[in-house]
Write a protein that binds this DNA or RNA. Structure first.
Lengths: 122, 122, 122, 122
DNA sequence: GTGGTCTAGACCACT
DNA sequence: GTGGTCTAGACCACC
């Protein structure tokens, strides 16, 4: 899953979202050390300062803890991660439903589509 | 509904999408005359040439018909509009499901959420 | 009162403190527009980015509100400013008393000193 | 009590201040032998030359006396130590009162605060 | 003109 | 090697 840096929001925000996604999906495991600022910057093809900003911003959410000389660590508190997942899910869900509504697609039509998708998977 | 021209795709493509949205949602009614290139260009804060390109491009899809002296008119053929709606719906739907999958949300959870939303509306 | 950028804390923190001081002392009046990032940066002899960081950081405290194209404005809520004053006062006070204690100076001696100062002023 | 060598004054001055603090607070007792230059240099994470300079400088103040073969000794003359204490006290006091004044805190308010602190201690 | 974002590259303190 | 700070200078969107 590459970084995909091509939307209209600031890069550092996109980075935060990608990192959150990795946390939610368990790519970064609770309590473990995150890659260093420089590593992540290289991986994302971004200036270290930008990555720094993204990580510093994330720190406020309490998901990440910094140990100044050792690196950054992902919280071990599962409830924080679960809360993040819920929050993200809710945000995306609302955005999706709003957009669907704006193009005149009702809940029923969405449900039908999802049903069809479910059948495709089986 | 402002234009908000600041994504990564070419401006004329963004314009096409916005106009398509207006067609789908009925802001522009089937068979009616569209605003002039100049008006649209001013509204979107864009060079008339850019708007021209967007409209010309759309013409190829058959949604818009030009009458040399009278201006541009939206097609009256409902099936074209319906097809456009389906296409857009499908695109957004897929994107949404892909994203949900990427944060580890299954179809069941999505269905539950939509159920809850339906109840909220009633 | 110049900027005095010569302690061990980060410059941007010192800037925040100086701006807070100006708010507390009424140099920046409630509700008014602050000087622009660039002006302040020049005044402080600092890179605009550094000033930006300081101001962005301050925004979280709710004392400053940003209007993206118009500039930054000081809150009109007097209680926030009063709270800031109390907080700063308390912090400095504690630090001072702790230091005095660490060099073996008791409260009595401090009081005596202040008495003498008061007499000097009269 | 670590050394924390990261302010704007020359390192050797900071060292002098720290040693003076230790003298005032009785960590180094009057008449006793100080640790060797090397020991102190290691403790402070500093080049022995720098520590040497600090100690040499202090010698001029008469607080420290060097005995060629035995090392450096702290003076036994209490009045010197007392003078040093007064000097430091005065410096900090002035700095404190100046700062309080700069944030618009009058002597009365300071007295009130100290009163409250005194009550807290009892 | 405003605030905001980003890069490139440097330096610092701490371990 | 780690995170953090800072500068210089560029570009962006909005008004």
């Amino acid at each position: 899953m590459p970084w995909d840096l091509c939307a209209d929001r600031p890069i550092y925000v996109q980075i935060m979202e990608e990192i959150e996604r990795r946390i939610i999906t368990g790519i970064y495991v609770p309590g473990s050390k995150l890659p260093s600022v420089r590593e992540l910057a290289v991986e994302a093809g971004v200036n270290p300062n930008t990555m720094q900003k993204a990580l510093a911003e994330m720190e406020q959410g309490g998901l990440i803890r910094t140990e100044r000389t050792a690196g950054r660590f992902l919280t071990e508190e599962q409830h924080r991660i679960e809360a993040l997942r819920k929050e993200l899910l809710q945000k995306r869900m609302r955005a999706f439903l709003t957009e669907m509504q704006s193009i005149g697609v009702g809940v029923k039509e969405i449900e039908a589509w999802i049903q069809r998708t479910k059948e495709d998977q089986t």
